[in-house]
Design a protein around this nucleic acid. Structure first.
Lengths: 211, 211
DNA sequence: ACCTGAACACCGTTCAAGT
DNA sequence: ACCTGAACACCGTTCAAGT
């Protein structure tokens, strides 16, 4: 049930994940699903847990490198699984502490931050910022339109660009020159690497500022 | 109409903003609203525009300081207005380029980044990251529950903490010690200042890494 | 243990019609 | 210019009942 909900979300977006739609796909009555989970929230919890469980962060003992390298590795592992299901990435934020797998990732991140010298409060704030950043990267990747085929996607990008092309080049030179990056992402590897780098660099700066 | 939709969202959350509910508040038929906007998306566009228009970023000429100080000032101004309406902050991300006010903020941010030496593509990616970070800070502020009174909020926090207290201290020492920061935010000023600092520091690092 | 039928209280939206 | 009535195709959810 969780599997087909996730598959549906991947294919047509989170909005398409509806009790009734899901039931139809499974050739069953909508009410039948209520035997398998209490309500829709719990179904979404299940999807989040599924994704979190697929993250492989290795064991703390076998991790190598200084703290920020280990942190980058954990965030990259998280990012990898989120990227597999961009439509449901937004579900994770409020649900990471609800599952064993999510708790393990959180423990690892907070442990590394505390080990780097951050106070528990500071580590907590940085931990949520880390999670938010990774989610935001995959959910808002420019040029990503789940549930649209290639033609629709290109059409959407074209019409957005066309609107901006009507802007005054004198008034909006920077917007116009950066436009391509705002709507499409031709080097996704670099895009995500930059996102992790940005966060790690920020944290390292805060560390040196605090000590 | 936009005003009362925004007021409703502030008071009871974005989910409460429904055509029918809004119509009832305005003592009018649901269908009456369709004379004032084409569909619900356009109403949400209007809310986003309202917030973006209230941002005061000053003029580029009167701005003082080096580029990253100016950038921090612009992001703080954005943050200030988002904080006034946390329930609808998430609307901004996809709508910032739809309004004059949003374009001006974007132009300023991208201009500062390009002026700092980032390529147009890189500036674009950093610009969306900046916006996402600010939105995420206000939308996910720990201990924020729009549409809940003080008693409900405290109850929600208590029950979340209680669940985590059942965890093994051996297995999750970092989670348990950082728990307070994950669920509540007793120093909001510091929380938001840290969010801006974190981003600015990351960008500065990327600048030095690139040059 | 697993599913269905019938019903309820909600959504957004269209379209023709009123003043 | 501004609003209503009636209707349509959707939601999530409950509850009693079936096998």
């Amino acid at each position: 049930v969780v599997s087909s909900a996730l598959a549906l979300a991947d294919k047509e977006g989170l909005d398409a994940v509806t009790i009734r739609r899901l039931a139809a796909d499974l050739r069953v009555t909508p009410m039948a699903l209520y035997w398998h989970f209490e309500d829709k929230e719990r179904l979404l919890d299940g999807i989040a847990e599924r994704i979190l469980s697929s993250i492989d962060i290795g064991s703390p003992q076998q991790a190598t490198g200084v703290w920020h390298e280990q942190l980058a590795a954990v965030l990259s592992a998280l990012l990898e699984q989120l990227r597999a299901h961009p439509a449901v990435a937004e579900l994770i934020h409020t649900r990471i502490l609800l599952s064993e797998a999510g708790l393990q990732v959180t423990e690892r991140v907070l442990g590394l931050l505390q080990g780097a010298g951050f106070s528990p409060v500071m580590a907590g704030q940085l931990g949520v910022a880390a999670l938010s950043s990774m989610i935001q990267l995959v959910a808002n990747e420019p040029g990503l339109y789940v549930g649209a085929d290639q033609a629709e996607k290109e059409q959407a990008i074209r019409s957005k660009k066309a609107r901006l092309h009507e802007l005054s080049p004198q008034k909006y030179p920077a917007v116009l020159s950066s436009m391509d990056a705002l709507f499409d992402c031709d080097d996704t590897r670099n895009y995500f690497a930059m996102g992790v780098d940005l966060f790690i660099a920020g944290v390292r700066h805060l560390q040196s500022a605090a000590s």
